[in-house]
Amino acid sequence: EKTLKIVADSEEEAEALAKELAEKYNLEVTIERNPEEEGKYVITIKIKP
Score class of each variant (00 low, 15 high):
Glu1His: 14
Glu1Ser: 14
Glu1Asn: 12
Glu1Thr: 13
Lys2Met: 12
Lys2Gln: 13
Lys2Leu: 14
Thr3Met: 07
Thr3Leu: 12
Thr3Ala: 05
Thr3Gln: 05
Thr3Asn: 04
Leu4Ile: 11
Leu4Met: 10
Leu4Arg: 04
Leu4Asp: 02
Leu4Gln: 04
Lys5Asp: 02
Lys5Ile: 13
Ile6Trp: 15
Ile6Asn: 01
Ile6Ser: 01
Val7Ser: 11
Val7Trp: 13
Val7Asn: 12
Val7Ile: 12
Val7Phe: 15
Ala8Phe: 13
Asp9Ile: 04
Asp9Gln: 08
Asp9Phe: 12
Ser10Lys: 02
Ser10His: 02
Ser10Val: 01
Ser10Asp: 03
Ser10Arg: 02
Glu11Asp: 03
Glu11Ser: 08
Glu11Lys: 14
Glu11Asn: 05
Glu11His: 10
Glu11Ala: 11
Glu12Ile: 06
Glu12Lys: 08
Glu12Gly: 06
Glu12His: 06
Glu12Arg: 07
Glu12Cys: 09
Glu12Thr: 06
Glu13Asp: 05
Glu13His: 09
Glu13Thr: 06
Glu13Gln: 10
Glu13Gly: 03
Glu13Leu: 10
Ala14Lys: 01
Ala14Asn: 00
Ala14Tyr: 01
Ala14Ile: 02
Glu15Phe: 15
Glu15Val: 14
Glu15Ala: 14
Ala16Gln: 08
Ala16Asp: 03
Ala16Trp: 12
Ala16Pro: 00
Leu17Glu: 01
Leu17Cys: 07
Leu17Ile: 13
Leu17Ser: 01
Leu17Ala: 03
Ala18Glu: 02
Ala18Ile: 07
Ala18Gln: 04
Lys19Asp: 02
Lys19Glu: 03
Lys19Val: 05
Lys19Arg: 11
Glu20Met: 15
Glu20Leu: 14
Glu20Gln: 12
Glu20Lys: 15
Leu21Ser: 00
Leu21Cys: 04
Leu21His: 02
Leu21Asp: 00
Ala22Tyr: 11
Ala22Gly: 07
Ala22Pro: 00
Lys24Asp: 03
Lys24Pro: 01
Lys24Met: 09
Lys24Cys: 14
Tyr25Ile: 01
Tyr25Asn: 02
Tyr25Leu: 02
Asn26Glu: 03
Asn26Gly: 11
Asn26Asp: 05
Asn26Ala: 08
Leu27Gly: 14
Leu27Glu: 03
Leu27Phe: 09
Leu27Pro: 00
Glu28Ser: 10
Glu28Thr: 12
Glu28Cys: 13
Val29Pro: 05
Val29Cys: 12
Val29Lys: 00
Val29Asp: 00
Ile31Asp: 00
Ile31Pro: 00
Ile31Glu: 00
Glu32Gly: 05
Glu32Trp: 12
Glu32Lys: 05
Glu32Asn: 07
Glu32Ser: 11
Arg33Ser: 08
Arg33Glu: 10
Arg33Ala: 13
Arg33Pro: 11
Arg33Gln: 11
Arg33Met: 08
Asn34Asp: 14
Asn34Arg: 07
Pro35Thr: 09
Pro35Ser: 10
Pro35Arg: 07
Pro35Asn: 09
Glu36Asp: 15
Glu36Gly: 14
Glu36Met: 11
Glu37Gly: 09
Glu38Pro: 15
Glu38Ala: 12
Gly39Cys: 09
Gly39Ala: 03
Gly39Val: 02
Lys40Met: 04
Lys40Asp: 02
Lys40Tyr: 04
Lys40Glu: 04
Lys40Asn: 04
Lys40Arg: 09
Lys40His: 06
Tyr41Asn: 01
Tyr41Ile: 04
Tyr41Ser: 01
Tyr41Arg: 02
Val42Cys: 04
Val42Ser: 03
Val42His: 03
Val42Ile: 13
Ile43His: 00
Ile43Ser: 00
Ile43Pro: 00
Ile43Ala: 01
Ile43Leu: 13
Ile43Asp: 00
Ile43Gln: 00
Ile43Cys: 03
Ile43Val: 11
Thr44Met: 08
Ile45Phe: 05
Ile45Ser: 01
Ile45Lys: 00
Ile45Cys: 14
Ile45Tyr: 04
Lys46His: 12
Lys46Val: 10
Lys46Pro: 04
Lys46Asn: 07
Ile47Asn: 04
Ile47Trp: 15
Lys48Trp: 11
Lys48Leu: 11
Lys48Ile: 10
Lys48His: 10
Lys48Met: 08
Lys48Thr: 11
Pro49Ser: 12
Pro49Thr: 11
Pro49Gly: 12
Pro49Cys: 15
